[in-house]
């Protein structure tokens, strides 16, 4: 199986030490994390991790099971890039003097979808939100104009097929969860149901 980028989305309780638990699942297996983000979710008290790794489907599936095994983890999903909408945000600091004198800023903003966040006499900060290629392309441009600083955020992603987590959480909250026995309604979609 070939490697590709997978985005893992994890819904969790807010628990001290959970970050370590999740991180050790990756570090123990010597997996390089490309991007790691934690944020609130649509539900108060439920957190959402977004992790990007480069691996095979077989491996990412096993990882998700290991993650779901953690007591405070509600669910872990993995998706290919086609299955998600994602964004990363990047900030660029450049000397205002050079920008103002030599660059057609307006063209820059239009062409790269950049925004100006701050203009000071000494420096200007641009922002680009988009995919990695887009934020990287803009570095190349600004490098010609004495780019001083660059920083990019982790990936955040929305799963196209997701219905959100409210319904799932209700299931989890019911105390009969786990005692259920299902009849033959999954047989045709074996792969799909193969997470908890």
């Amino acid at each position: 199986m070939s490697k590709q980028e997978y985005t893992i989305t994890i819904y969790t309780e807010n628990h001290i030490g959970l970050l370590t638990r999740i991180a050790t699942i990756f570090s123990r297996r010597k997996i390089n994390i490309e991007s790691f983000n934690t944020s609130p979710s649509e539900i108060e008290s439920v957190f959402r991790f977004t992790i990007v790794i480069n691996t095979t489907e077989e491996f990412v599936k096993k990882l998700c099971r290991q993650i779901e095994r953690q007591v405070e983890v509600l669910r872990a999903y993995y998706n290919t890039n086609e299955e998600i909408i994602w964004q990363e945000m990047a900030l660029y600091k450049v000397p205002t003097k050079i920008i103002a004198e030599t660059v057609k800023v307006e063209r820059l903003l239009r062409e790269y979808g950049a925004k100006v966040v701050v203009i000071r006499t000494d420096f200007t900060i641009f922002e680009v939100t988009g995919h990695r290629e887009e934020t990287e392309k803009f570095i190349k441009v600004l490098e010609q104009y004495n780019l001083i600083e660059f920083v990019r955020s982790a990936r955040i992603a929305i799963i196209k097929a997701s219905e959100g987590f409210h319904k799932k959480l209700k299931e989890f909250e019911s105390s009969e969860h786990g005692e259920k026995q299902f009849e033959n309604k999954f047989l045709t979609s074996k792969e799909k149901i193969f997470t908890m």
Partner: peptide, 20 residues
Amino acid sequence: CEHIRSYLPKPNIRKEFIEE
């Protein structure tokens, strides 16, 4: 304690696999 919402001690049983 008998229930923790994020913790599923016993996974759901899927009868079709038992039949298979």
